[in-house]
Structures are given as structure tokens and as C-alpha cells.
């Protein structure tokens, strides 16, 4: 596994609960269930906290505590399971989450762009080799047809008037 962030492979500092023990001194990534059990215990916890969410996890009840988390990792059980795209947009836009948003699980390099546009910052991938294609993917299109978290939406005013099709006028 490798962590890709801004097109570079980075060290993953986050750790998980193992064998019923809380690791000290490192950022801690919790599932929603773990968070629900440990919220009281972790009230004065000083290391950074992160949440690992599944597609079936509701977000509404997390709203009041979202600012406790520096990382939210959204899991893709299969690369064809698109729930996390909606979760990412809700977290960013409706709930105002501004920490790191990470895609984990089964993801393809071909999905970097749409993940980026939905607000993801980092990607846990099987092979770190794909880090180099990240920048190409992100910059492939000059603009887009719809607004999202990132990516320039085409401006109606910037397009050409109907009378003067600049490209391929012969086509019509």
C-alpha cells in the first residue's frame, strides 16, 4: 500500500487500534463504531484523530463532532461502488469539513480526477507507481460542465456567440 497526496508518495502516519489497545504518540484512525464507543474516553486525547467511514455510515449524526477530526477516510469496497463520492461532497459542502479527505480501498488511477473534484486530497493505492499519473489526470480537462468541489466550471459568458462557431465551422 502507498499513500498518494498531491501527486507524491507520502508516509502514512496514521495508525489503527489493534488488539484492543490504543497506540500512544501517533495519529489515530477510528471506524465510526470505534468512535462511538470511545468518544468519552478520547475527550481529552491530544493526538490527531481520524475517522474511517463505510458507504453505509450515516453522516448526519457526525456533524457536531466533525471538527475533532483531521482526517476522514472514505472506503471504496469496490472501485465501482460510488457512494463515497456523495459522502465526500456532503462532508465538504454541506457539513463544511475542511480536514484531509482520503480515498481508501479499491480505487483506480482513472478515478483520481473525479475523486479530486469531489473533494478528496489523498489516495491509498495498491501501487505507488500511479503517483506520477495523478497530475496528468487532474489537469487533463480544461474545464467541466458542472460545479463540484474542485475544477473550473465552464462559464456561459466565456463561450462563443452562436453566430461565430470558431471551431469546425464546416461541420454544420
Amino acid at each position: 500500500m502507498a499513500l498518494v497526496k498531491h501527486g507524491k508518495i507520502q508516509e502514512d502516519a496514521w495508525t489503527r487500534i489493534e488488539n484492543d489497545s490504543l497506540p500512544l504518540g501517533r495519529p489515530l484512525l477510528l471506524t465510526k463504531e470505534e468512535w462511538c464507543c470511545l468518544a468519552a474516553t478520547l475527550r481529552h486525547w491530544e493526538q490527531p484523530l481520524g475517522l474511517l467511514l463505510e458507504g453505509s455510515d450515516s453522516l448526519d449524526d457526525l456533524r457536531p463532532v466533525l471538527d475533532r477530526f483531521r482526517l476522514i477516510a472514505l472506503n471504496f469496497p469496490k472501485f465501482t461502488d460510488g457512494r463515497a463520492y456523495s459522502q465526500a461532497r456532503l462532508l465538504r459542502k454541506r457539513y463544511g469539513y475542511s480536514g484531509e479527505l482520503r480515498a481508501v480501498g479499491n480505487i483506480l488511477q482513472d478515478q483520481f480526477l473525479q475523486m479530486h473534484r469531489c473533494g478528496f486530497d489523498s489516495y491509498e493505492v495498491a501501487d505507488g507507481k500511479v503517483a506520477e499519473v495523478w497530475a496528468v489526470a487532474i489537469h487533463r480537462y480544461r474545464g467541466f460542465y458542472q460545479s463540484a468541489e474542485r475544477g473550473q466550471r465552464r462559464e456561459g459568458a466565456a463561450t462563443l456567440p452562436v453566430e461565430q462557431p470558431a471551431a469546425a465551422a464546416w461541420a454544420y
Partner: peptide
């Protein structure tokens, strides 16, 4: 057509 083209959120629907 324009709105739905490569919509980043709705490209892997059920």
C-alpha cells in the same frame, strides 16, 4: 446533457 457529462459524483451509480 451538459450537466450529466462526466459528473464527478454520479459516474458510479448503483
Amino acid at each position: 446533457r451538459q450537466w450529466s457529462t462526466l459528473h464527478p459524483e454520479f459516474s458510479f451509480l448503483p
